[in-house]
């Protein structure tokens, strides 16, 4: 590959914050952005599981540091942004990845259920954008995780779907507001990706993994794709890398749909 072309995808010298860094897409994105040359600050409220991401980064010699923070808490994110600015002197990228998945039919949804999903999936992104914008003094790239579930309705995913739809509109508004500061804001609406968040819905009552149920779910989702496949966390991390790099400089306010062709927009 031509060295200059490669440089367009490089994050050398950049600093990025990734929320939801303990596992799944957040973990993969943390490692991928660091492999691309960025110094990455990974945050998550799950300190124990984040130790794994830390160990993986350490084993590879990647420039990652980690902090415990809850994206539903605006102050937590503001502090992470300030601290990152102080420690590294700049913030160029910010990926709002932390998210939760809860199933409930509309008639059964409780206020606690919907408030929890909104607090993380929707307000967590809002506070993340605000925190990123407060420290991105030389422009930057913010990437928000939406979902195909924000455009395609699924029974029992009302709360999840509405927060993910909100992320798309929030992304467009933020792109308009922050464009003059040179900050690009884009969303990714992943199709089905086999992550721990999804795997948690395949657990039996005793907490063990129901492998048959998991395979059935994966096969059904793969069948919806013209390619016959489901996604990997690496597919999402690659899209985020593109949006954060110089190669993605003309993208803002967009929704990217790495979904195997399940939905075309």
């Amino acid at each position: 590959m031509d060295r200059r072309l490669q440089d367009r995808f490089s994050l050398d010298g950049q600093v990025a914050v990734v929320t939801g860094a303990a596992m799944g897409m957040g973990r993969e994105t943390t490692l991928t952005l660091a492999r691309a040359g960025a110094r990455v600050v990974g945050i998550d409220r799950n300190a124990d599981v984040m130790e794994e991401t830390k160990a993986m980064a350490s084993a590879e010699g990647l420039a990652c540091s980690f902090a415990v923070a809850d994206v539903s808490n605006r102050d937590d994110l503001m502090k992470v942004a300030q601290r990152t600015q102080e420690d590294h002197g700049r913030v160029d990228g910010w990926a709002n990845i932390a998210g939760i998945l809860r199933y409930s039919m509309i008639e059964d949804i409780t206020p606690d259920h919907v408030n929890e999903v909104i607090a993380v999936n929707q307000l967590g992104v809002l506070w993340g954008i605000a925190a990123a914008a407060s420290v991105m003094s030389n422009g930057g790239s913010i990437v928000n995780i939406s979902s195909s579930g924000g455009e395609m309705p699924y029974p029992s995913l009302a709360a999840y779907g509405m927060t993910k739809a909100a992320v798309m509109q929030l992304t467009r508004t933020a792109a308009l507001e922050l464009g003059e500061k040179g900050i690009r804001v884009n969303a990714i609406a992943p199709g089905f990706v086999d992550t721990p968040m999804v795997r948690n819905t395949h657990l039996r009552a005793d907490g063990s993994l129901d492998e048959a149920k998991r395979r059935e779910h994966l096969a059904a989702r793969a069948a919806q794709s013209p390619l016959g496949i489901t996604g990997e966390v690496q597919d999402m991390a690659m899209t985020i890398l593109f949006l954060m790099s110089e190669a993605g400089r003309f993208y803002t306010g967009q929704v990217m749909r790495p979904n195997g062709g399940v939905f075309f927009g």
Binding site: E51, K54, A55, A57, S58, A59, E60, G61, A63, C64
Partner: peptide
């Protein structure tokens, strides 16, 4: 040298 420093994270 930089990668070695980064790789110095501890597991609990």
């Amino acid at each position: 040298i930089e990668r070695r420093q980064r790789a110095a994270l501890e597991t609990p």
